[in-house]
Design a protein around this nucleic acid. Structure first.
Lengths: 299, 299
DNA sequence: GGATAATAGTTGACGGCGGCAAGTGACTGG
DNA sequence: CCAGTCACTTGCCGCCGTCAACTATTATCC
């Protein structure tokens, strides 16, 4: 099954199994669209009817009627806009807010009941899948660095192994090297002077960075990685800064690292952050000819 | 954001961004429901109107009218069922089949165009996410064993690290041990007499199993793992059999393995497969008191 | 075997969803 | 000041889908 077929299949599956869920207009006597509009009024960005219609993909005429109905029921007031007499400012009344809140609560309960029937494993799998689908369309804006948790080290090995094989043609010995580095780190790193982090964003691991000791005064940055979809968004810079801050706090005087010349984006990042290139050496590693660049920076 | 909120959020997102896609009734002049019915007639299991109504969640009366329309347009014929005069056998005409096929093609093209705008990375992420969501509801029925590919070793480390920490309370040294085992295997296993496999099902990795040498005549089974959602479906037995077959083919005379007594399901599997318990020893490992069972079987 | 219930399907009535297009008053740019 | 645009409204209408009544057939139970 190719990915076109996979998406079509999922779409059929979704409309059958999950379609009813999100709206969960059950019991409220409200239609699906009414609920969506109400939700937009209550929790979405403030805006004119025009904007709401656009956001929800509704016909303006239809929305106008819906809003008239809302007003008649006392859920909203439509006051003339002093700045533009064509527009009308939409505002929920107390009653409207209460309705939105109660509906929100009911919907939460319905979804909770649905999830409650699933096993914890299936729920975890579902959450994981949803996060991925969503990120495929909305790149993450921010990420948070967290200390290594169980499974993180393996994830680092996997992503390094897969992406360096795909993008650089490295063979399996590279994945083995990363696995060994991680095994060493897990077993015998010095928590007082060394640390590793996973960048989390949108419910998913997006990258990794490690700061380890190369002597009393020298720290080394290793295993700096970002998922391809998360590159070019400034997350790398944030991770690098976090690592520099850690190294300074721990009393190191300089930080070194090496990377491959072919990683243009990474090299640009280090150059811009004030690192200086202190070496350039050719090497044959992992079944490929590579050029390694050594960097350092004063802390 | 907890998982209830995540699902609600996804649902909103889906109706906005992807809702139109699946149906893709664009241009055909057909309504969403008509397309679904047509699809069911063309590609779904054969059945009465009643069954189709049930499968698609439609009102019988409404469906009856739809089918009458289809017949009038020459897409289907409704012949009386010789076995049950209440029923009518539904069959697509040549014209109906052609319509379904052309619509299927158009829909494929529409989805393809949509996916074509995405980056390959995003597409991969999407496919991965969809597979997970779907498996959260439909457990995989079958799996296929594949040789180790880039990233697989890391995945094994991750899953062992995460699940043994969660279920058994093991500390990080367990993940380190698995990482080291994988590093050794990748670097220096004997491809002629040793192998490792990943079980794939539903577009996802579901488990792992390895067969390695412990001398000329003795093979060892290691890193036997199945995702929790994929347990109890007979996949484990299939993987075990594949490993036994491999060991026999390579000329080993016996296969040994050890596991923890707390893995009731795994122990049952080995017992049922004809393994004999040759040892039972207490050990303190990975921050926990454990009981290890040694197994062996003649090949 | 006959009353009764269940099943497959049809039909009419009806309400709500939502698209389309014409219309109204207000703003904007030349 | 006039044409064009914009935010919104309104009337019209078709489609989607529900409900309930109805027919014809089959299954069930005593």
């Amino acid at each position: 099954m190719d990915d076109i077929e996979a998406l079509r299949d999922f779409s059929r599956f979704y409309t059958q199994r999950l379609g009813l869920l999100g709206q969960s207009y059950l019991g409220s006597g409200l239609g699906v669209t009414e609920v969506r509009v109400l939700w937009e009024l209550a929790f979405g960005a403030q805006g004119s009817a025009r904007e709401i219609a656009e956001r929800l993909g509704l016909d303006e005429g239809y929305l106008s009627r819906l809003l008239a109905g809302f007003e008649k029921k006392g859920w909203i007031v439509r006051a003339p806009d002093p700045e533009d007499a064509r527009r009308r400012l939409l505002r929920l009344t107390g009653e409207g807010k209460a309705l939105a809140a109660s509906h929100d609560k009911a919907s939460r309960a319905a979804v909770g009941g649905f999830l409650g029937q699933m096993s914890p494993d299936a729920r975890a799998l579902l959450g994981d899948g949803l996060a991925r689908v969503k990120q495929a369309f909305n790149p993450p804006e921010a990420c948070e660095l967290k200390d290594l948790a169980p499974g993180d080290a393996g994830w680092i090995v996997e992503r390094h192994g897969l992406l360096y094989a795909r993008d650089e043609g490295y063979d399996a010995t590279f994945e083995a090297l990363v696995a060994e580095i991680m095994a060493d780190f897990l077993r015998s790193h010095d928590p007082a002077r060394e640390s590793g982090w996973i960048a989390w964003g949108g419910g998913r691991r997006l990258g990794s960075v490690f700061c380890v000791s190369r002597g009393e005064e020298t720290a080394q940055l290793r295993l700096f990685f970002l998922e391809p979809e998360a590159r070019g968004l400034g997350l790398g810079r944030m991770m690098l800064d976090a690592c520099l801050t850690f190294a300074r706090d721990k009393g190191y005087r300089e930080l070194v690292l090496w990377t491959h010349e072919s990683h243009a984006a990474a090299c640009r990042l280090y150059d811009k952050a004030g690192f200086e290139r202190i070496g350039r050496r050719a090497a044959q590693e992992f079944g490929q000819d590579t050029v390694i660049i050594d960097y350092r920076i004063d802390l």
